[in-house]
Design a binder for these strands. Structure first.
Lengths: 335, 335
DNA sequence: TGATTAAATCGAACCGGTTCGATAGAGCCC
DNA sequence: GGGCTCTATCGAACCGGTTCGATTTAATCA
């Protein structure tokens, strides 16, 4: 590999001039610039990113930290970020914490060690230690998906209250009253907001919520399945189930199918967030989806803005909340 | 941030001794070691991975390069690799080429620039330029999924011929004769092998393949959908469709559903490779799946072996081919 | 006890860039 | 022509580690 010193020698200038020519060509005379250009081409010089990062104290990498890269929600956002970053000569390092807070922390520390230029973080933690940790990081960070109280960073997400309310209202309009809700972890804002949207919409309609019909699905497959089973074996069975995310809703569908319930004939189902191949799932689930492309785009722009603008670091954090979209299916019937 | 010089000063030893103590404690006297240990704890020293990589010429990162990290097949492999790498103090950098060869190449070049210790690569290219490029990389590489002729590297994959043959035989045994096959790109070994398994099994059974029933789905959703549509509008419609991968098979299911065909009553369907949530897709698709966990485990071990063993680099490349597994569903009926 | 050898530690060079103060020369003004 | 400013270039220090030959110290043996 050719180094900058090889270039300098061949062009008969000093190393620092070559470096300057690369970072700020305007400050080098045109004939020197030309000599350097030719020398670079002749020896096939490419700057070593590691050496640059070490010297600069900043790399051209962006860390992307989520709980599950397989989730198409995160996948869409990742793609947007990658495209935008690549256009701005940055490289996205994708990491997956499997939803575990300690692992996420380890990954973030790794990324910080790599002197990443910035972080796009879907936080999984929520306690004070975690919040302090995120606050201590001296790097541009854009958080998304999960709004964590106490983290003073840019945030990009969707109106989860609205998402829960929309589907609840839909089910109410179809005549449902015994509506079950499968929740997520109580420490996740997305989960509590979606539930609040459900509960308040029910209350506004004057419908009382049977506490037995609110079960905890933890946003996971196993807990969601179990929660759904508990719903289905009740004598006062719900006429509709609202899953607070894609995983618990589809777990409920699986439980229904296994026990022999038909959807929507026996029980209606609605969910928040899409999954891959939802179009071939029978019935097509009625859902509210987030505008992942827009979210990804905002995250990317906001992050690059903070990275590239010198004064970007001191701008106060800002929240971007998008409106989710209703996607009708045929999993909810009128009763 | 504390540096190694801070530690050296506090422990009253030279920088090189601290470095030695860190990399090879046995060669440092126990009392010096203790002094250094205390000094490290006192100043909170953590070695800068960037500086280490620059000095060593090798980092502790492993590059993972696939066409679609959202695909659960790659997701499982990624998880295995990450776990194993983490246990061996390596960090996996995940990149997604979106299936584009030029982008994959850019990502690999980036990773090489990062002086990654090794690469787990699901190659998407096939021409001579690409092969030469991969050959030119002076880093341990384990290729997987796609076996590319000419690339002399470790390879880990499944017996794709068998996968195609198993499902074909199954359909034949159920009485099907007009079996359609949706292929993948002809430059992909997985695609051609799966097709060969289909074609030879048909030939062995003395059943002639109608060329109109072999259509190209490119392993993509749009092409698969289009190919399926062309199958469905034929007067001599197939009684069964075999999709060479999950994407084209599910695209076919979608096409069938949209046109009003029932599966399996009107047309049977079988596919190679699983998808997330296949258990809630109606009907449950009969499929042959790869042992992703075993594949991931082998990839991880083989790669770490080459990375950590000094003589690992010169070992001749080896192929690991696993047997895929038949998973019965109810998408194939006896006729 | 002095010579020999092994173990422990050190110093300096190096990895490949960036950065900034210093210096030399060119151009301008009075 | 002397003083001044600007521009182009350079040298040296630095980022934070690793590596290896050299040197000092301790242990072994005749």
């Amino acid at each position: 590999m050719a180094t900058i010193r090889d270039v300098a020698k061949l062009a008969d200038v000093s190393v620092s001039t070559v470096s300057l020519a690369l970072s700020n060509p305007a400050r080098v005379s045109s004939k020197t610039l030309e000599k350097i250009r030719q020398a670079i081409a002749a020896v096939g010089f490419v700057a070593d990113p590691l050496a640059q990062s070490l010297a600069r104290g900043r790399s051209r990498m962006i860390g992307f930290v989520v709980g599950n890269v397989g989730n198409p929600f995160f996948g869409d956002i990742r793609r947007e970020l990658e495209n935008y970053a690549l256009d701005h000569e940055h490289f996205v390092v994708v990491t997956d914490s499997s939803g575990k807070t300690d692992r996420e922390r380890a990954m973030v520390e790794h990324l910080i060690g790599l002197k990443t230029a910035g972080l796009a973080l879907a936080p999984s933690g929520y306690d004070q230690g975690y919040i302090d940790f995120v606050a201590s990081l001296n790097v541009p960070i854009v958080c998304f998906d999960q709004k964590v109280a106490g983290i003073e960073r840019d945030f990009v997400g969707s109106d989860n209250y609205l998402a829960g309310a929309m589907l609840t209202e839909h089910l109410l309009q179809l005549g449902h009253r015994r509506i079950a809700f499968i929740t997520g972890p109580s420490h996740m804002r997305t989960a509590t907001e979606r539930y609040r949207g459900f509960a308040e919409t029910m209350a506004n309609a004057g419908v009382e919520v049977n506490p037995n019909l609110v079960v905890d699905g933890q946003f996971t497959r196993t807990a969601g399945y179990e929660a759904a089973m508990r719903l289905l074996i009740q004598p006062e069975r719900p006429t509709a189930i609202l899953g607070a995310n894609n995983t618990v809703a589809l777990s409920a569908l699986q439980a229904m199918q296994e026990l022999g319930f038909r959807c929507p004939e026996d029980i209606s189902l609605a969910m928040i967030d899409n999954v891959q191949w939802s179009s071939v799932i029978t019935p097509r689930i009625t859902m509210v989806v987030q505008d992942t492309l827009a979210l990804g785009s905002i995250i990317a722009r906001r992050l690059m803005h903070r990275i590239t603008n010198p004064q970007g670091a001191v701008e106060p954090p800002q929240d971007f909340v998008l409106t989710p979209k209703f996607v009708p299916g045929n999993s909810c019937r009128r009763i």
